[in-house]
Design a protein around this nucleic acid. Sequence first.
DNA 1: ACTCCACAGGAAAATTGGGGTA
DNA 2: TACCCCAATTTTCCTGTGGAGT
Length: 435
Amino acid sequence: MNLFTKYSRISNILEGDLEHLSGSYVPDSFPHRETEIDHIVRVLSSILRHTRPSNILIYGKTGTGKTSTTHYVTKMLSEASSDGVKVCYVNCQVYDSPYSILITIVNTLSESESDMIPPLGWPLDRIYSELISRINRRKGFYLLVLDEVDKLIEKNGGDSLYVILKVLDDSTVSRTSLIGITNDAGFLDGLEPRVRSRMNQESVLFTPYNASDLRDIISFRLNGVVKKNTVTESAVNLCAAIGAQEHGDARKALDLMRIAIEIALREGREQITDEEIYQARDKFEMDVVKEAIKTLPLQSKIVMLSSVVTQELNSKLMVTGEIFANYRNICAELGFMPLTSRRVSDILSELEDFGLLSATTKSMGRYGRTRFISVMGQLDLFKKYILEDENLSMFRGSKVTRQSRFENVVDSRKQENGNLEKRLSEIADSEIQKD
DNA sequence: ACTCCACAGGAAAATTGGGGTA
DNA sequence: TACCCCAATTTTCCTGTGGAGT
């Protein structure tokens, strides 16, 4: 019997491309987004009358269709316009600093491979002037789409966004408009008034989808991908419900459906029911965590590893000092130069933002004030993912110690009654109960 | 009321490393 | 090659702090 026979029953379910359910696929129709699309089209249509359209700010939560809708509309626009609109799309999320985003923007505007700017080294003002000259060089219209514009804002008062906007508005022929996309509702509030007014000439709000919207979207996308009646109605509803829980996230709902179908294919099942959707959700959540860990910088991985092994020894909540002590031990074992406690403290905050750790600052009075930290998830899985890094695969845990700070305090002060220990477990218990 | 722990987290200096120019 | 400029990353130095002990 051929090994592949078991997996060759694909045709029982599929009749189209599963890619149509992926997040990057741009369909040719957007149910429940007609008004938003119409709004954008109205603004952009002035290009066809050879006047510069207003800048547009699009905002809405993730998975509300901001990006695909924009792709769709701009594509239609360049098809409709005879003298060629050039659409430059930059996803600011991909870059980690406003500086590199700026470089990318300028490079997206370049006409040929030869006049690319090197990714580092140029002073800012030279980049700006290059931006201006490139915009003025071209005769046709530019449409600069900045996805996740909020990433362009610098914490310490930098104003690259302002400069870009000013350049676009002031350039002599003024043929360039900007479309900003953001999922941060407070984005505008954080801007200076002069930036805000330029950015916000037109704004389009993408409201979250509700469960019945999502149901329509899923059915629409399934159309032609899957054979009739292979996905039960209740599975679609469940998928929509889960997506609606997550602030009306269509991307997540579609991802779940796609994963569920993949599971059904692999297992050779004939139908997609609630069960497959639930399995898909579990897998989805695991993948997110795995991906988050895998893409962590090396030092963050070590800190994460230290958190995991410290928690293995501790079984309850940890404090910063313990994680740091073991972090140093691990660095010593593996031969890395350890970072300062200050930096590790920041890394711990970053890991908390990623949702890999949870932390609450608490004061233990006489015993100081520190963060109580716990790992959010299954320790053994986390450890497995971290150790997949080739730099860390040699880790054996030989030098990892248990609760160094804790024991030192007790020993040096001869706390016979174990007040600290009692206090620690009280706090730990109350924290755990909170969850 | 006062002390003092064990950090949090702000600010500024120092280091790193790419790239330019002479 | 030597040297300067730049942004990013870390380190150094620092002040701040909630509340148990005394």
